[in-house]
Design a binder for these strands. Structure first.
Length: 909
RNA sequence: GGCCGGUUAGCUCAGACAGGCUAGAGCGCCAGUCUUACAAACUGGAUGUCGAAGGUUCGAUUCCUUCACCGGCCACCA
C-alpha cells in the first residue's frame, strides 16, 4: 500500500467535503430513526458583504464540533446556514461600487434600479462567505440555506411588524433619534459607538432678564445654544432657587427662555445650570417633554445650521457654527472660560461620522413589553443557560431590565420595506400586503412608507423564520424549534440574542435556544482587536492553506470561550499532531495484512496483553472525558484529552509496546490478533477525533481495511451514502454499563512498567550511553504482581530500553538478585529498584553524586510530607482520605530513600 | 459612574467553581539520536517566591479584602 510520509490536507479537504455535501450527509433526513432525539443549531448569519474572519472560523468550529458530535450519537441533527442582508453595509458597498464604476449615485438611477443592482451584487458576490464555510468543513445543511430577504423570511418580517402594530407595541411618531449626517438615516442606540474624546467645555453666560445677574452654563456643544429653549437647575440647588421661574435672555438670539427646575440636573457638575436644547440632545429632549418646552431645530439632516439658527448662521456646518458662536460670546463678553475636557462622542458605527441627535418621525418598537417574558425566564429559571455563565447571564439580564424603545425605521433603500401605507390625507394602514392595506383604506391611492427596517429586525426572527414561521404548521418549526444552542460573540448579546428570545417567546411561546455559548475574542499577537481598518487580522484561509483546516480547528476549539492572542505556533503544533496521526495510521496500515478489523470491537480478550488491556482502558477513559467535555462545552479539555491519549498513550506507548508483535515476520494468530487490536483502537480513535478533525479522520478511515456501512450508527444504517466516518457512532462510556471498560489494575501495572522504562532510559542518558549500545537490566522487587507483569512484558521492556544483554529478575518474591558494584541504579515505586551493570563505565564518584542528588530530592519531599503528618491539627481535621493519601506517599518516599541508601552503601567508599 | 474579567515557565494558554495530587501542556531552550510510522520525529533534561499586601484555614496559586496594571460590557452627566 502506498501512503505518503506526510499528510497533505488539501486533497483530503477537497475530496471529502464535496462528497458529504453531494450525498446529503449534512441534512437531518439522513437519519432514519424516527425516534431519534433532535439537535438543531441556526448559524448567526454572517453579512453577505462579509468575508470570513477568525471570529467566524471560531464560531463555526464550535458549532461544527457540536453538530458532528451529536450526529455521530444518532441525533436528528440540523445545522442551518444562511446570510444576512446587512442593510447599511451592503447599501454602502454597492453605492461605492456604483460611484467608482459609473460615477453615479443611487439617486441617479432610482430606487428600483438600485435595488436590482444590489440583488445582482448579492447573487454574484454574496456567496463568498458560504464558499469559505465549505472550506472550514462546516457540516451545515445547504438545502436549508436562508437569506434574510428570502420571500418567506420577508413574510415573517411583515407578520412580526403587523402583529406588534396590532398589539400596540409598534408605533410611529416623533422622537429624538441618532441621525447619521453622512449615511442620511436614523440609527438605533446599538448601531452607534461611543468614543472618549479630548475636547473643550465652554462656560457661557446668559443674562437674567431685568437684572445684572448672569447664569453660567457649561457645554461641549456651544452651537446648540442657538436652539436653547430653557436653562435647567436642580430644584434643591440653593444657588439658583430664587431664579427658578425667571427668564433669561438667550444671547445672540435675544430669545427669552425660562429657568426650570429638574431633578436630572447634577448640582455638582459644571455650574449646576444646564442649557436645554430639546431638539438636539436626548436628555434635553426629555427635560423639554417634562416642562413643555418648545423644540427649535437649528441643525438639519446634513449637520448644517437651519434658518432657525438665524441668518448669520444658516447654512454653516455645525463646527463652523461652533467657532462662530464662541467668537460671538467672546465679543459680547459672555464667554466665561474654556476648559479642557474629555467627553464621550457618539459616532456612526459604519462610517465614523459624528451622530447628530435629531427629532424625527420614525417607527419605534416598545421593547420593554417584549422583553418581559425573557426577563422572567432568566430570572426565575436561568434560561437560556449562558456559557460561560459569568459574566454573560448578567449582561443579558441587565440589558433586559433597561429596555428603551427601538428605532426601527431606516432611511435606506436596501432592506425590508416597512409594511405601512398612507392615503392622501395621511391616514396610516399597516398590513401584511398592499392588497390588505387597500382593503383597509378603502382606496387604491396609497403610498408605501419609503423607509426600510433595521437589519436586526429580521435577525430577531432568525431562529423561527428560517424554520418556517409564520406558517404555524411548518414541519421544520415543529421538529427543530427550540434550537439547542446559539454560538456567538459577546458584543451582540443585546443587539441580537435578547431579541431572538423576545420573538421566540412572543410567537412560539418558548425560548429560542436552550444554551448560549459565547466565544472568546481573538486578538493579534500584541493584544489588539483584529480589524479590517487596522489591517492586523489573520486570514483564516491563509492559515488553512499553511497548516490545514483540521489543525486550525483544533486551535479554535481550544480557544472556545477564552480571549486569546493569536499565535501561529499553536497551529503549527496541531499541524504536527495531524501529521502524527497520519503516520501512526500509516504504521497500522502498513502492518494491516491479516488483520480482521471487524470493528465489532474487542474480541478474544483471553489473548490480550497488558498493553492491550491498558490501551483499552485509556481509550474508554478518554472517550468518557471527551464526551463529558463536549457536553459541558469544555472544548479545550476535549482537545487536550484527545491529544494526549493519541500521542502519548497510543503512539508513544501502545504502538511501541506492540511493535514487535505487529511487525513479526510470520503470519501467526498472535500477529493477526495484535494487528486487529491495533487497527481497532485506531479506528475508534479516529471516530473520537472526527468532530474536531473531520478531514484527516475521514481520509484515514476510508483507507482502513474492512470499513463499511456496518460501522455506521444504527440511525444511518439505511442511509444511501458511501460509508463515512461521520455517520459512525461516537464512542461512548456509560457509567452504568461500562465500568469494566476502565481497568484500574491494568493502568497501575502499566504505570510501573512505564516508570521502569523511563528510569532506565534516564540512566542511559545520564551516563552518556550511546542509544545503540545494548545493556543488561537487573530488577529487584518484593511485589509478586509486578514480577508477574514483568514476566509478561520483559521482551517489550528490553526492546524499549535496548537491553539486548538481557533482563534479570527474581523468579519469585523473597529472592534478591545480586547487583554488581559497578552498576547504575534507580529506585522505583513500591520499593523496587532497577540496576544497569556497567563494568568499566561507572565513575563511582559520579554515581554516588547522582544517587545522593536523587536521595536529597526524595528526602526533601519526605520532610514536607512528614511535617504535615506530624501536625496533630492536620491529622485531626483533614479528611481521612487526605491523611491516608499522604501516609502512603510518605511510605513510598521512605522506601525509595531506603533503597537509595542501600545503593550508596553498595557503591562503597 | 455601574457591573465584570484577566495577571501562572521566555511566548500562547490550562488548572481555581467543590483548598491538600511533587503546579501542567504546546512552542521555545539544553544534550543526544535517522532506534525497520513519523526529523512536522524520537530519548533525556532545565525552567515558575502562580501580579502585590493582608485575612480566613491544620493547610491558600485556588476562598475573602485591599491595591497595582491590562481589558470587556453597560450607562442620558451638560
Amino acid at each position: 500500500m502506498e501512503i505518503p510520509k506526510t499528510y497533505d490536507p488539501k486533497q483530503a479537504e477537497e475530496l471529502h467535503y464535496a462528497r458529504w455535501e453531494r450525498e446529503g450527509c449534512f441534512a437531518p433526513e439522513i437519519n432514519g430513526d424516527a425516534e431519534a432525539p433532535v439537535y438543531a443549531i441556526v448559524i448567526p448569519p454572517p453579512n453577505v458583504t462579509g468575508s470570513l474572519h477568525m471570529g467566524h472560523a471560531l464560531q463555526h468550529t464550535i458549532m461544527d464540533v457540536l453538530t458532528r458530535f451529536r450526529r455521530m450519537r444518532g441525533f436528528r441533527t440540523l445545522w442551518l446556514p444562511g446570510t444576512d442582508h446587512a442593510g447599511i453595509s451592503t447599501q454602502i458597498m454597492v453605492e461605492r461600487q456604483l460611484k467608482k464604476a459609473e460615477g453615479l449615485t443611487r439617486h441617479d438611477i432610482g430606487r428600483e434600479d438600485f435595488n436590482a443592482r444590489v440583488w445582482k451584487w448579492k447573487e454574484q458576490y454574496g456567496g463568498e462567505i458560504t464558499r469559505q464555510m465549505r472550506r472550514e468543513g462546516a457540516s451545515v445543511d445547504w438545502s436549508r440555506e436562508r437569506f434574510t430577504m428570502d420571500e418567506r423570511l420577508t413574510r415573517a418580517v411583515r407578520e412580526f411588524f403587523v402583529r406588534c402594530y396590532e398589539d400596540g407595541l409598534i408605533y410611529r411618531g416623533p422622537g429624538i433619534i441618532n441621525w447619521c449626517p453622512k449615511d442620511q438615516t436614523a440609527l438605533s442606540d446599538l448601531e452607534v459607538d461611543k468614543e472618549s474624546q479630548a475636547g473643550k467645555l465652554y462656560y457661557l453666560q446668559y443674562p437674567v432678564q431685568g437684572s445684572e445677574r448672569r447664569v453660567s452654563v457649561a457645554t461641549t456643544r456651544p452651537e446648540t445654544m442657538l436652539g436653547d429653549t430653557a436653562v435647567a437647575v436642580n430644584p434643591n440647588d440653593e444657588r439658583y432657587r430664587d431664579l427658578v421661574g425667571q427668564t433669561l435672555v438667550l444671547p445672540i438670539m435675544g430669545r427669552e427662555i425660562p429657568i426650570v427646575a429638574d431633578e436630572f440636573v447634577d448640582p455638582e457638575f459644571g455650574t449646576g445650570a444646564v442649557k436645554v436644547t430639546p431638539a438636539h440632545d436626548p436628555n434635553d429632549y426629555a427635560i423639554g417633554k417634562r416642562h413643555n418646552l418648545p423644540q427649535v431645530q437649528v441643525i438639519d439632516q446634513y449637520a448644517k445650521m437651519t434658518a432657525d439658527a438665524g441668518a448669520e448662521f444658516a447654512g454653516l456646518d455645525r463646527y463652523e457654527a461652533r467657532t462662530k458662536v464662541v467668537e460671538k460670546f467672546e465679543d459680547l463678553g459672555l464667554l466665561e472660560k474654556v476648559a479642557d475636557y474629555e467627553f464621550a462622542i457618539t459616532k456612526c458605527e459604519r462610517c465614523g461620522t459624528v451622530i447628530e441627535p435629531l427629532i424625527s418621525t420614525q417607527w419605534f418598537l416598545k421593547q420593554a413589553e417584549l422583553g418581559r417574558a425573557p426577563l422572567e425566564l432568566i430570572r426565575e429559571k436561568h434560561e437560556p443557560r449562558f456559557v460561560p455563565e459569568n459574566p454573560y447571564e448578567k449582561t443579558y439580564t441587565n440589558w433586559l431590565e433597561n429596555l428603551h424603545d427601538w428605532t426601527l425605521s431606516r432611511q435606506l433603500w436596501w432592506g425590508h420595506r416597512i409594511p405601512a401605507w398612507y392615503d392622501e390625507s395621511g391616514g396610516v394602514y399597516v398590513a401584511r400586503t398592499e392588497e390588505d392595506a387597500k382593503a383597509k383604506a378603502g382606496t387604491d391611492k396609497l403610498t408605501q412608507d419609503p423607509d426600510v427596517l433595521d437589519t436586526w429586525f429580521s435577525s430577531a426572527l432568525w431562529p423561527i423564520s428560517t424554520l418556517g414561521w409564520p406558517d404555524e404548521d411548518a414541519p421544520d418549526l415543529k421538529t427543530f424549534y427550540p434550537t439547542a444552542v446559539l454560538v456567538t460573540a459577546r458584543d451582540i448579546i443585546s443587539l441580537w440574542v435578547s431579541r431572538m428570545m423576545m420573538t421566540g417567546m412572543k410567537f412560539e411561546g418558548r425560548k429560542a435556544f436552550d444554551d448560549v455559548f459565547i466565544t472568546g475574542t481573538i486578538f493579534d499577537k500584541h493584544g489588539q482587536r483584529m480589524s479590517k481598518t487596522k489591517g492586523n487580522g489573520v486570514d483564516p484561509l491563509g492559515v488553512f492553506d499553511k497548516y490545514g483546516v483540521d489543525a486550525t480547528r483544533l486551535v479554535l476549539a481550544s480557544i472556545g470561550s477564552t480571549d486569546t492572542r493569536w499565535n501561529d505556533n499553536q497551529v503549527e503544533s496541531y499541524r504536527n499532531f495531524a501529521n502524527k496521526i497520519w503516520n501512526a495510521a500509516r504504521f497500522c496500515l502498513l502492518n494491516s495484512e491479516g488483520a480482521d478489523m471487524s470493528g465489532k470491537g474487542w474480541a478474544h480478550a483471553e489473548d490480550w496483553t497488558l498493553a492491550d488491556r491498558w490501551i483499552r482502558s485509556r481509550f474508554f477513559r478518554t472517550a468518557r472525558d471527551v464526551n463529558e467535555a463536549i457536553n459541558g462545552y469544555d472544548f479545550h479539555q476535549a482537545v487536550q484529552s484527545l491529544y494526549h491519549f493519541f500521542w502519548d498513550d497510543f503512539c508513544d506507548w501502545y504502538i511501541e509496546l506492540t511493535k514487535a508483535d505487529v511487525t513479526a515476520a510470520e503470519d501467526t494468530p498472535a500477529r493477526s490478533g495484535a494487528r486487529s487490536r491495533l487497527l481497532t483502537i485506531l479506528e475508534q480513535s479516529l471516530r473520537l477525533l472526527h468532530p474536531f478533525m473531520p478531514f484527516l479522520t475521514e481520509e484515514l478511515w476510508q483507507r482502513l481495511p474492512g470499513v463499511g456501512k456496518d460501522l455506521h450508527h444504527r440511525a444511518y444504517e439505511t442511509a444511501d451514502v458511501t460509508p463515512t466516518i461521520m455517520l459512525t457512532s461516537y464512542p461512548q462510556f456509560s457509567k452504568k454499563f461500562d465500568t469494566r471498560k476502565i481497568d484500574e489494575r491494568a493502568e497501575s501495572e502499566m504505570r510501573a512498567i512505564i516508570e521502569l522504562i523511563s528510569r532506565v532510559r534516564n540512566i542511559r542518558t545520564e551516563l552518556g550511553l550511546k542509544p545503540s549500545e545494548e545493556i543488561e537490566i537487573i530488577l529487584n522487587t518484593e511485589d509478586e504482581r509486578l514480577l508477574e507483569v514483568l514476566g509478561e512484558t520483559s521482551g517489550q521492556i528490553m526492546r524499549l530500553t535496548r537491553a539486548g544483554k538481557g533482563m534479570r529478575r527474581p523468579g519469585r518474591a523473597g529472592v534478591t538478585i545480586e547487583v554488581p558494584r559497578a552498576s547504575a541504579r534507580a529506585a522505583l515505586a513500591g520499593g523496587a529498584e532497577v540496576a544497569v551493570p556497567l563494568e568499566g563505565l561507572i565513575d563511582f564518584e559520579q554515581e554516588r553524586a547522582r544517587i545522593t542528588r536523587e536521595r536529597e530530592k526524595q528526602e526533601k519531599e519526605l520532610q514536607k510530607t512528614e511535617a504535615q503528618l506530624l501536625n496533630p491539627q492536620f491529622v485531626e481535621r483533614a479528611p481521612a482520605e487526605k491523611v491516608e493519601e499522604l501516609r502512603q506517599r510518605a511510605a513510598d518516599t521512605g522506601q525509595r530513600i531506603k533503597a537509595l541508601g542501600e545503593m550508596l552503601e553498595a557503591l562503597g567508599e
